[in-house]
């Protein structure tokens, strides 16, 4: 019993640690002052109005949203495919270990290194800095996370189901759609959330592959010169939007059975 109490206290401390800076950022967003500082001199909604009225922030938010959506779709499709390839049929095929290492390798490269190397490569392939260059760059870092999360979902998967389905005469593709996919859905959902967040927050790759117009870059440019609470206000609004979107997503999915976030 006492150990449970200790654990509870520890968890409370960790919660404070995790959420502390966010609470501060929220407080700063409501500040009535001119500069980013805590505690705020007073409370006001002026910086929310400022952030909403800032055309560059609005355009950048929309742009980041589309980039993240496209990058997520690509990452999840590619990552799921990779996970299936690595587990299907006991996952034995020539070169499997190398393939898995290659798929996970983007995790090992610092973002700016990849960005610097990717810019001339993209140009060589006929892709100038802009929407698709950014999307594909984000997809490169999203694929390992996607693959890992779907692989983790496959760990619970019983291959006997595939054999049973085959012996019932269901073709491989339909079997995948009707049997495999629903069971690894939690993994796919967490892969989608993870890669979306990674793309939305990405700075290092966007610096070189975009035209300076994604949201984190605009926030950074703003901070580099003016550093007003508008940045915090923009972030708070985004958090509320994302939380809302995810709650809705969770409710829609929960209607189809239990969902475990970590697969």
């Amino acid at each position: 019993m006492r150990s449970a109490w200790l654990l509870g206290a520890f968890v409370a401390l960790v919660l404070l640690f995790l959420l502390g800076p966010l609470l501060i950022a929220i407080a700063v967003a409501f500040s009535s002052g001119e500069r980013i500082g805590f505690p705020p001199p007073g409370l006001s909604l002026r910086w929310f109005a400022d952030a909403l009225g800032n055309e560059q922030f609005r355009d950048a938010a929309a742009r980041s949203l589309w980039v993240a959506l496209a990058a997520t779709v690509i990452s999840v499709v590619a990552g799921t495919g990779a996970a299936v390839a690595l587990t299907q049929g006991q996952g034995r095929f020539a070169g499997r270990a190398w393939v898995q290492a290659f798929i996970m390798l983007p995790l090992a490269i610092p973002g700016i290194v990849l960005g610097l190397a990717l810019l001339p490569t993209a140009i060589m392939l006929g892709l100038r800095p802009g929407f698709w260059a950014t999307v594909l760059g984000h997809a490169v870092v999203g694929i390992p996370y996607s693959a890992y999360l779907v692989l983790a979902a496959f760990a619970q998967y019983d291959p006997a189901l595939d054999r049973a389905s085959a012996s019932l005469g269901v073709g491989p593709w339909r079997s995948f759609l009707r049997v495999t996919l629903p069971l690894i859905r939690p993994g796919i959902v967490s892969a989608a959330i993870c890669t979306f967040l990674l793309s939305f927050d990405n700075v290092a790759l966007s610096l070189f592959l975009s035209r300076g117009d994604t949201l984190p870059l605009r926030l950074m440019q703003h901070i580099q010169f003016t550093a007003t609470p508008a940045v915090a206000a923009a972030s708070v609004m985004l958090v509320l939007l994302s939380l809302g979107a995810m709650l809705m997503l969770g409710r829609v999915l929960r209607g189809r059975g239990t969902i475990r976030i970590a697969g």
Binding site: L119, P120, P129, G212, D213
Partner: peptide, 21 residues
Amino acid sequence: YETENSVTALTKLQAQREAPP
């Protein structure tokens, strides 16, 4: 207008010499 500091401007010029952005 596009926002580029000296460094990113140079990087992008280097990458697209024949058809600068």
